[in-house]
């Protein structure tokens, strides 16, 4: 079996884990990065969202073999300007309730803001539609994305 190599939160990873294993369970149970959550296993809830080469990706249906040579970023390694701004806005507005889905929400929002500095309501709907929040914190998620965008713009000006 060929070892799988990829980059995780900026560090090189080499593993001989089952290539069919979803990235989610590799991250959680082999590496111990538990910030990425299991919610549905079929890419319907977004709790498992990570960045794969900067793109928001559902790790629960992404087999390990699909990340060969890729850059994977999880909530624990979120260090981009958009990521930091997203977390800061989430904190300022106290978005979280139970918090379980919020790693995934933040990863989706950070990926959106990285490529779209001023998302419209429709942009937010499209980018965040795949992330369920059973506590329905959507009202604040939307506000926090707008605030993060504003802060990013101010920071880069």
């Amino acid at each position: 079996m060929t070892a799988i190599k990829f980059e995780l939160n900026g560090k090189p990873i080499t593993t001989d884990a089952d290539p069919e294993m979803p990235l989610l369970w590799y991250l959680r149970e082999q590496v111990g990065l538990t910030g990425t959550k299991y919610g549905c296993g079929i890419a319907q809830c977004g709790a498992c969202t990570v960045h794969l080469n900067g793109v928001a990706t559902r790790s629960c249906i992404t087999p390990l073999q699909a990340v060969v040579s890729a850059k994977v970023m999880t909530i624990e390694g979120l260090s981009t300007a958009a990521g930091k701004a997203t977390q800061a806005a989430w904190q300022t507005l106290d978005v979280v309730q139970c918090g379980y889905c919020q790693s995934g929400q933040i990863m989706s929002a950070a990926a959106l803001l990285a490529k779209n500095a001023a998302p419209t309501e429709a942009d937010i709907d499209a980018a965040m539609h795949g992330n369920l929040c059973r506590c329905a914190t959507y009202h604040r998620i939307r506000a926090a994305i707008h605030q993060a965008a504003t802060n990013l713009k101010a920071g880069s000006a």
């Binding site: 538990t34 910030g35 299991y38 909530i75 977390q87 904190q91 978005v95 979280v96 918090g99």
Partner: peptide
């Protein structure tokens, strides 16, 4: 509980 729930540090049973 906001800081730990926005950084992936909050621990649930899972």
């Amino acid at each position: 509980d906001t800081p730990e729930k926005t950084t992936g540090r909050a621990h649930y049973t899972i």
